Amino acid sequence: MKLIGSLASPYVRKVRVVLAEKKLDCQFEVENVWAADTVIDKFNPLGKVPSLVMEDGSVMIDSRVIVEYLDTLTPVCKLLPPNGRDRADIKCWEALADGMLDAAVNVRLERTMRPAEQQSAEWMARQMRKVQMSLASLSDKLGEQAYCAGIHYSLADVAVGCALGWLSFRFPEITWRDDHANLARLYDKLSERQSFKDSVPQ
């Protein structure tokens, strides 16, 4: 398998962490989707990363689809329950973490891709409110649990950890560590895992 992605993308990081936790061999090919010579369209008509090129040449897109598939390949470090409510709960954690990222990414693109005079302060404020509301919700859901799903490390922790890491990387002015001590404790614990150490955004 070959993973097409960037070193900065939190969605790509999520897949990289899962690959490492599952001990799956996969070539990582760095692609800058914003470069004039990008070839991402060969792999994903949406022009996004990550894309996972399979052994037969077919391509799987979207981080949520990819990590769910990867978890089926080996029983090592199972990250999702087999079915039912517990599985749906984990996927809801992932959806919230990814949705928070979507809002934050929108703000970053507005700031970096549009001239200052064309940027919408109102629209960016709306997106940042989503980020703050999501952080509060993640913190409330986590409570004093050791991990998002309770006592077991799961895909929920991977998704939340990648989202928090990217916020620190791109939005250091967001004081989520001070505002939500339990999320900071979770992220510090996750950061000790080799899979997280090897995929710090850059």
Rank of each mutant, 00 (worst) to 15 (best):
L7F: 12
A8K: 13
S9K: 03
V12S: 13
V12M: 11
K14H: 08
V17P: 00
V18E: 11
A20V: 05
A20P: 04
K22Q: 09
K22I: 09
L24W: 09
F28W: 14
E31V: 08
V33I: 15
W34R: 13
W34V: 06
W34M: 12
A35G: 06
A36S: 14
D37N: 15
T38K: 12
K42P: 02
N44A: 12
N44T: 09
P45G: 10
P45L: 02
G47P: 02
V49S: 10
P50L: 08
S51V: 03
S51G: 14
V53I: 15
V53R: 09
D56T: 02
D56W: 08
D56P: 07
S58Y: 06
V59L: 09
M60R: 08
D62L: 07
S63I: 01
S63V: 01
S63T: 03
S63G: 07
R64M: 01
R64H: 03
I66L: 04
T74P: 07
V76A: 04
V76E: 15
L80M: 01
P81G: 04
N83I: 02
N83M: 05
N83G: 05
G84Y: 02
G84C: 02
D86L: 11
D86G: 04
R87I: 03
A88M: 01
D89A: 05
D89W: 04
C92H: 12
E94I: 01
E94M: 09
L101R: 04
D102H: 08
V105T: 06
N106M: 15
V107G: 08
L109I: 02
E110M: 13
R111W: 07
R111F: 04
T112Y: 09
T112L: 13
Q118K: 14
Q118R: 11
A121L: 10
R126Y: 13
R126H: 14
Q127M: 14
V131N: 05
S139P: 07
D140I: 03
K141V: 03
L142D: 05
Q145I: 06
Q145K: 15
Q145C: 10
A146V: 00
Y147R: 03
A149T: 03
A149Y: 04
I151F: 07
S154E: 02
S154R: 01
L155R: 00
A156G: 01
V160I: 01
G161F: 03
G165W: 04
W166C: 09
L167K: 03
S168I: 06
F169Y: 15
R170A: 15
P172H: 12
R177V: 07
D178Q: 15
A181M: 11
N182L: 10
R185V: 06
R185F: 05
Y187V: 00
D188R: 03
L190S: 02
S191L: 05
S191R: 12
S191K: 07
S191N: 11
Q194C: 06
Q194V: 06
S195F: 03
D198R: 09
V200G: 11
V200Q: 15
P201N: 11
P201T: 07
Q202T: 01
